[in-house]
């Protein structure tokens, strides 16, 4: 998985994100079967089972949204990337770091989507808890389901349930591809 382009090193990024007690790590295809398996692995993990109900539910729900966001929205990785060749390549990591759980996702997107993703996350991060709640209700009540079934609520739901800002980086990889790294914290 070693590849360095435009200063971005995927292997270093991955190693850095594994800091903490690793509950789950996945590098490869994001499929419905993989998601089912990952959910089961997290749910049966001792560090998950020992949490109080509210934390368990938040972690599980947010994990579902993070993975299904990947499933619906990843772009194919660069052709020269030495990962197992798959058009829906993504990385998912769940770690416990002290009193926090962190869900990290990483995937490639086309450069053309950078502005959209950046603007969307910056907008969500600028909202107060009350504004997030009202926007959620507004979209739930007024917008129809997108072709991918996402409904435009995934990221918003993550922000709402965690009460934390989304931490993200967009690493230029080559002329076409950008690596999108997202960290979600649940306390």
């Amino acid at each position: 998985m070693v590849d360095i382009r435009m200063g971005f090193n995927l292997e270093e990024w991955y190693a850095h994100k594994l800091q903490g007690d690793v509950i789950l790590k996945h590098v490869g295809s994001i499929s419905p079967e993989m998601i089912t398996h990952a959910l089961d692995a997290v749910e049966t993990h001792s560090q998950f089972k020992h949490q109080r109900l509210q934390t368990r539910k938040k972690l599980y729900n947010v994990f579902v949204e993070c993975m299904q966001n990947l499933y619906h929205h990843v772009d194919p990785p660069p052709a020269d990337l030495s990962v197992e060749g798959t058009s829906n390549f993504g990385i998912v990591i769940v770690v416990q770091d002290g009193s926090f759980f962190r869900i990290t996702t990483g995937n490639f997107i086309n450069r053309s989507k950078v502005s959209f993703i950046k603007d969307r996350i910056e907008q969500l991060n600028s909202l107060s808890d009350e504004e997030v709640r009202l926007l959620y209700r507004d979209i739930l009540g007024n917008e129809s389901i997108s072709e991918k079934g996402g409904g435009g609520l995934g990221m918003l739901d993550i922000v709402r349930k965690t009460g934390n800002k989304l931490e993200y980086f967009l690493y230029p990889y080559d002329e076409e591809h950008v690596f999108f790294s997202l960290d979600v914290y649940i306390s």
């Binding site: 389901i145 996402g150 609520l153 739901d157």
Partner: peptide
């Protein structure tokens, strides 16, 4: 017990 945002629209 759990539902995702995709289901939330359908329940509505």
């Amino acid at each position: 017990e759990y539902f995702n945002t995709s289901s939330s629209k359908c329940i509505l």
